[in-house]
Amino acid sequence: MEKINTLFYCIGQGFKNIKRNRMFSFTSVCTITACLFLFGIFFSLVSNVRYMVNNMEKSVAVTAFFEPGTTDSRIAEIGLELKGRSDVKKVEYISAEDAWNRFKGEIFEGQQDLVDSFGTDNPLADSASYEIYVKDVTKQKALVKDLKKMDGIRKVNSSDETAKLLINFNRLISVVSIFIIALLMAVSVFLISTTISVGISVRKEEIGIMRLIGATDFFVQGPFIVEGIMIGLIGAVLPLFLLAIIYHQLIQWLSNRFSILSDWMVFMSLRTELSVLVPFSLALGVGIGLLGSGLTVKRHLKV
């Protein structure tokens, strides 16, 4: 019973502290909001790029064409060897006819007379190939290198340039964002710590009286911890709302604007995005608040 009464007291008092210490609390909330807002933006960016790359990985393949006159048994042999590789997900044999049919479908769609003009000739007669899907785009380079060394392979086409670009971009963003977020987090922790310090120094007298009456550490420190956590929570909830609104608007706008690219420019739904961001941001906010207030309380309120 005592514990519960004390808990309620700490929560109530924590809120009062925030009100009493308005300016500092406000500054702290703003910094955490900025920090977690940036975190949200970077996270959305990185996760979306990764999502696109993943999609691309599914559709992007390495195509290996054979030397003219390569025997069917050699082709089968190459196929087996490729399937045996651990980095290869799928190998598909595209015969010359398949290639031609596909080409006709994609390029000459609706231009039947043009297609007809080729008659029964297959302009892609030597274009039988393997389409090789890799498990991880970053491993594509090694595969291409190996393929080029193989007997009977004439040419290797890999369309991983975009993927590579995106991955590099993602790496850069990750590094930059981790750096900025870490910096902002440190600032947030520092500001919360300052806020709590100010609160403690204003209430030095009161704390002394509490101690004389026999207040436990929990009772003395609780309100300040609650204050820190509340600041962290508010600083986490605000940017989540902001992000949700902005994200929703932005993906709609982008999808409309760049509909030509839309076969690879697919975005994660707001819902999926939030399902990760909400727990992460809340945990970070609470963590920052707890760290900032915890450190300060430990420093100032130990006997």
């Binding site: 007298e205 002394g208 009286i209 101690r211 004389l212 009456i213 026999g214 207040a215 436990t216 006997v303």
Partner: peptide
Amino acid sequence: VAAYRRKIGCVFQDFRLL
């Protein structure tokens, strides 16, 4: 210490009120 102090009351020259 906290538990001990609960059994003791104290007053001072400067009252120490909130």
